[in-house]
Design a binder for these strands. Structure first.
Lengths: 255, 255
DNA sequence: TGGCGCTGTTCCACTCAGTGAGACGAGGAC
DNA sequence: GTCCTCGTCTCACTGAGTGGAACAGCGCCA
């Protein structure tokens, strides 16, 4: 808190004001969402547009191309993704469902790569999107192998219910994590999306560090949990083996 | 130039110091590349790490997860990509080669989506990567339908040779662009990568605005330029039709 | 036509946030 | 031990960034 770096905070407030489903924001909206004076936003936006971090078309501001480029340069997603693509393709082929790869960031999973199964199945997440750790197979797979403090932190943020089946009781969650750790497999039956079932497993890099989770997801009627298990487990192991030692360093716990 | 916004410039200098093939940089390297004092870099990096725009593992700094997320939120790539995925899949199936989608930014094309053909063919570009406009089929397809000032600007930056076959003579480039505009198709035979041939076409959104280029690329021996033409043209049209009117607004010329 | 509500940009005096040379402490190498 | 090089911290200085207020440019309506 001592080191504020005001300009940066203001800048990130502007970036964070953008959300998935708006097609561009105007200065006033931006100022309101970021809780900053209009004049400040106007000035910062001009600077960011000049740097191509934002784009502007008339009065409408959008996230810029350079952010897309920089994002693609981020090492962890990039390397993990590159290693995972063939594995995800195999997993999709074997199960016929959509295959996902995600990494944990605090109490959410960030989706890194997706291989869509049949186009009728709805996706549970967009690439770069976030889903709750406690309510998804991917999340539980990762959390089960995280250090205990991480579990405490997740519980502490509160287990929000996404559907009536979401696990909201800390004790039940912890209990289930034990099973996940034993089986090397996590399942979520309509805990995140109604009508959607998922199976996922933890991915370890060769030194044995947890790097993320891989799994499949589909309509509850379409997916065969029993049959998917071995495929998911196989994919998790295959991906682990493909990760060059030290290639994808472990994530530091997020402060 | 009047409005400098020093902190932002320093911050972008830090971001821009990262390049594709280094696995993290230390503060000193960062300071050297960004041409900033170590103490300043140290301070800014701390702030950016706190915001998850950078990640740090011991002394090694990497681009952070939030950049990846933000990048995925950037509207233009996101919408174009979503519309293009099925089209790219068809194109790959029809030609058996790797299919690419890119948009133009000044004198370079930024790659937005790729569907890899057979895994033996080398890719000409990574997602989020840049390739020169004048030396690639994708670039020439886009440039042929850009406004004349854009062509002048590209020529003015100098036509650097990537291979002995790269077009470096402005007159010859302009001449070829006329043909591309007539045919709705651009070809590059080993002008960017030795042994690599590509075919690409311009993509227009329904109001008739150029939004990018789509094409295929492969080893010169594998790719059948004549046969690919109609598939590429078809894909370009199909993608255009899939773009909701106003969905992907035209790019402003980059200052 | 003139007034109104809404944009986004510019101005400018105030001041505090950011700067960076240099001091500092922590490792490694030998 | 000495000598590197690493990253962080200190602190006096100052100019860069701030934001309220004034301004300019719409589009709308009576």
């Amino acid at each position: 808190m001592s080191d504020s770096l005001g300009v940066l905070d203001r800048m990130t407030a502007i970036f964070e004001a953008f959300d998935e489903d708006d097609r561009g924001l105007r200065i006033s909206e931006l100022a309101e969402r970021a809780e900053l004076p209009k004049s400040t936003v106007s000035r910062l936006v001009s600077a960011l547009v000049r740097q191509h971090y934002l784009e502007r078309d008339g009065t409408v501001i959008r996230l810029g191309l350079r952010l897309f480029e920089l994002g693609q340069l981020a090492e962890e997603p990039r390397e993990l993704r590159a290693a995972a693509l063939p594995v995800l393709a195999d997993l999709r082929r074997a199960t016929g469902r959509s295959a996902y790869l995600a990494i944990r960031d605090a109490h959410e999973m960030v989706c890194i790569a997706i291989m869509r199964g049949d186009t009728t199945t709805p996706l549970i997440c967009r690439i770069g999107g976030r889903i709750p750790v406690h309510a998804t197979a991917l999340g539980k797979a990762a959390l089960a192998h995280a250090d205990p403090a991480a579990v405490d932190a997740v519980v502490a943020t509160g287990l929000a219910a996404s559907t009536p089946s979401t696990i909201t009781d800390p004790a039940r969650l912890r209990n289930q994590l034990v099973g996940v750790r034993r089986d090397g497999l996590a399942v979520d039956v309509e805990e995140f999306g109604i009508g959607v079932t998922s199976v996922a497993g933890p991915v370890f890099s060769p030194p044995g560090v947890l790097v993320g989770a891989i799994g499949v997801s589909g309509l509850s009627g379409d997916i065969d949990v029993e049959a998917s298990g071995p495929h998911v487990r196989g994919a998790a192991l295959a991906l682990g083996r493909r990760l060059a030692p030290g290639g994808v360093p472990p994530r530091r716990p997020s402060h």
